[in-house]
Design a protein around this nucleic acid. Structure first.
Length: 726
DNA sequence: GCATCGGATTTTTTT
DNA sequence: AATCCGATGC
């Protein structure tokens, strides 16, 4: 074990002060790369080693499970391995709340073995609720209602208090109640419920709250700027008296407003705890000064923000590179080529590089480029493993075996693989269950008996199919209670002949079966792991958690999931207005400010090299369109960037160059009357140059740069252009 | 009851 | 562009 004071070795004076502050409400405001996580970890070690706090009295909230694991590992290096009972409680809000709710289930309207519904399950349940209310899913999109309810839950708003200010709000209010009933009937909670019920529990049960306060007198929270109302209330309820609440965050990196996160919690913290000690960590240890200057150029333009200086002693390093590509394929091509060049030159290895984008959809083209060049990559998020159909099927079987009340899972698997049970039969089954006030699963199990009273309700064939399923279910439940998860899973696979169903010999079928095998491995990895815990882990893993450390692979990830990470080399692609900032943020200044912060988060992930890329043309939802360069690009200090910084003026020239280049390789279709480079005259816009001609649906669409009129998109048949030369 | 086809709808970000 | 949903036909 290291000697006492080396706990502070390698910490700068600011960090030391923050780590050794006397317990109480403490706010550490820290810029990117300033050693936030390090301070947090050392703080925990300090409590244990210097103040003699038992590890089991400490609870620390991290943003991802991966961050929790990383912190545990770093902690072990500082205080030695956690011994049995005496370990720090570490996890995400959701994981910690789930644990709390299971322990305290007796106080709550659901059972200890509740399951956690993911968004697909939630949507399915919401559809059911709306259907019961005789609402047309086309008029009332279940997803919208679900979003409204989720937002309400994050704001701690109960169904009764839901403000129904619009028609959809009115619907949502009623749907909220029904949806909540259905969840309880399923013995299920959605993500938001984990937090909501935990807050209710602590709020309404004094003895529970006091017990938890005694149990965890020391609370720490990372990424505090991204807490929402429920999470903040949870912290407040849990914080004892006097509170030892240690919050670390950076308002400039708040990027989850849409999920209910409220940066104002930072200010609220200081109001709620007027004596809170505040520490600022300013020195950056991650990036070159050039990168920091670029990032400051962007964030300083954020409205209503105090200017903050980011500095490093790492030196200036290389300029930030900016590149404008033709379209997203060209963009991906540029990224891959630059990546390979650098790797060959020994400037970096592919594993040092991360490629970031605003939307998951953008990863596809990049993946293709990587595959084409035979380059290894790892993709964070997107189509997550647990989201795959076959995996969801099997998880539904497992959930059903654990919790027969889970009707959503039952309905998912009842006829998967097909066993002759159609809509009619299922309708009868549900009606019967409703009428007798028992669970559908109970009817199935009863049907498997010799002479069930329920048999009469069904036709002969459906009845025996249902009975067969019921019999299996009984067997699976027995296994769930007695055997390791792997055994149960294998029994299910065998019983329902799942492989025959999923693996049809095609490549896709093989892929799907491979996923199943991966799930089997996961289940067998830790035979001690109970079904309950496995399902909970699966429900609460985040995209980042799936990111394996190993390999020599480049990382592809969204800007959101890049939070908290760092890479020697960062590419940010898709720097177009409409993508970053995203179009959906145009009419909301707050949303626009968040887009800016998101860009800032991306920029500050880079240690040594930063490449910013955009595409002149972008394909989306069928057609293609021309994009303006991201407005944020013009906020980068000119003396910190190199390459073809796209301004409107140079853009017109770039467009012309590119057009001639690309149109040259793909001959203009015969029907087109205009070509890029032609000079034309328009009745009102005057003279200009055709930048692009594109045929779609028999119409010729033109992009023309007019000398007086500016850049215009025209339909050739309407525009009546006079060709001057070309 | 099941398969196939066409159409609508989606994509912003995630625990 | 891809997936999911529903309607239609067998």
């Amino acid at each position: 074990m290291p000697s006492p004071m080396d706990l502070l070795d390698g910490l700068n004076p600011q960090q030391r002060l923050a780590v050794t502050a006397p317990p109480g409400p403490i706010l550490v405001l820290a810029g990117p790369g300033s050693g936030k996580t390090r301070v947090l970890t050392h703080r925990v070690a300090y409590l244990i080693r210097e103040l003699g706090v038992p590890a089991s009295q400490i609870m620390a909230v991290t943003f991802t499970n991966k961050a929790a694991r990383a912190m545990r590992a770093r902690l072990e290096a500082l205080v030695g391995p956690a011994s049995g009972r005496d370990s720090v409680s570490l996890g995400t809000f959701h994981a910690l709340c789930a644990r709390m709710l299971r322990r305290e289930a007796e106080h709550l309207p659901f059972r200890r073995d509740f399951v956690i519904f993911d968004d697909a399950d939630q949507l399915s349940l919401m559809r059911q609720a709306l259907k019961e209310m005789n609402l047309d899913p086309k008029q009332i999109p279940p997803g919208k209602v679900q979003a409204l309810i989720s937002r309400a839950k994050n704001e701690l708003i109960e169904p009764e208090d839901f403000a129904a200010s619009s028609y959809i709000g009115e619907v949502a209010k009623r749907a909220y109640q029904r949806y909540q009933q259905l969840l309880l009937q399923n013995n299920a909670l959605d993500f938001d419920d984990l937090l909501l019920f935990a807050v209710r529990l602590l709020r309404d049960h004094d003895e529970v709250r006091l017990a938890y306060r005694r149990r965890f007198p020391h609370l720490l929270i990372d990424e505090f700027q991204d807490t929402n109302t429920v999470q903040y209330q949870w912290l407040r309820l849990l914080a004892g008296d006097p509170p030892d609440l240690y919050a670390v965050g950076d308002a400039d990196q708040s990027i989850y407003r849409w999920r209910g996160a409220d940066v104002r919690n930072v200010r609220r913290f200081q109001e709620d705890y007027p004596h809170a000690q505040v520490f600022l960590l300013e020195q950056n240890y991650r990036s070159t000064q050039t990168i920091l200057d670029a990032a400051m150029g962007v964030i300083d333009r954020a409205p209503g923000r105090q200017r903050k200086r980011l500095f490093t002693d790492r030196g200036h390093g290389e300029l930030v590179s900016i590149h404008e590509a033709y379209d997203e394929a060209d963009e991906a091509q540029y990224v891959v080529e630059t990546l390979v060049e650098g790797a060959h030159a020994g400037a970096w290895s592919p594993a040092d590089v991360a490629i970031m984008y605003r939307t998951n959809a953008q990863s596809r083209v990049l993946e293709e480029a990587f595959l084409r060049h035979n380059l290894p990559y790892r993709l964070v998020g997107a189509q997550r493993f647990y989201g795959r159909r076959e995996v969801k099927d099997l998880l539904a079987y497992l959930r059903l075996a654990l919790n027969p009340s889970d009707q959503v899972s039952l309905l998912r698997v009842l006829n998967t693989p097909p066993r002759g049970l159609g809509a009619k039969t299922i309708e009868t089954l549900l009606a019967l269950a409703d009428q007798k006030r028992i669970r559908a699963a109970d009817i199935l199990q009863d049907l498997s008996g010799r002479d069930s009273v329920f048999r009469a309700a069904f036709g002969t064939r459906p009845a025996s199919a249902l009975a067969d399923f019921g019999q299996r279910l009984i067997a699976w439940r027995a296994l769930a209670a007695s055997a390791p998860v792997g055994t149960l899973l294998e029994a299910i696979l065998r019983d329902v002949r799942y492989r025959e169903f999923i693996d049809d010999g095609t490549e896709e079928g093989e892929d799907r079966w491979a996923n199943v095998e991966e799930l089997i491995n996961l289940a067998q990895e830790d035979p001690e792991l109970g079904l309950e815990v496995l399902l909970e882990n699966v429900a609460l893993v985040s995209d980042q958690d799936t990111l394996a450390e190993d390999q020599n692979a480049t990382t592809l990830l969204t800007l959101h999931s890049a939070k908290g990470l760092e890479f020697p080399v960062v590419f940010i692609v898709g720097l177009d207005d409409g993508l970053l900032p995203h179009q959906r943020s145009y009419d909301d200044p707050e949303a626009m400010a968040e887009e800016r912060r998101l860009f800032y988060v991306g920029l500050t992930r880079a240690m040594d090299r930063l490449f910013l890329v955009r595409a002149f043309r972008r394909h989306a939802a069928g057609g293609s369109s021309l994009a303006e360069p991201s407005r944020f690009l013009s906020d980068l200090p000119a003396d910190r960037i190199q390459g073809d910084a796209p301004t409107r003026l140079t853009r017109a020239q770039a467009v012309y160059e590119r057009q001639t280049r690309w149109e040259g390789s793909t001959p203009t279709p015969l029907e087109a009357r205009y070509r890029a480079g032609m000079r034309v005259r328009h009745r009102s816009f005057g003279e200009g140059m055709v930048l692009e001609s594109r045929l779609s649906d028999g119409e010729e669409e033109l992009t023309v740069q007019f000398e007086v009129g500016g850049l215009k998109w025209l339909a050739a048949s309407m525009a009546n252009l006079e060709i001057l030369e070309g």
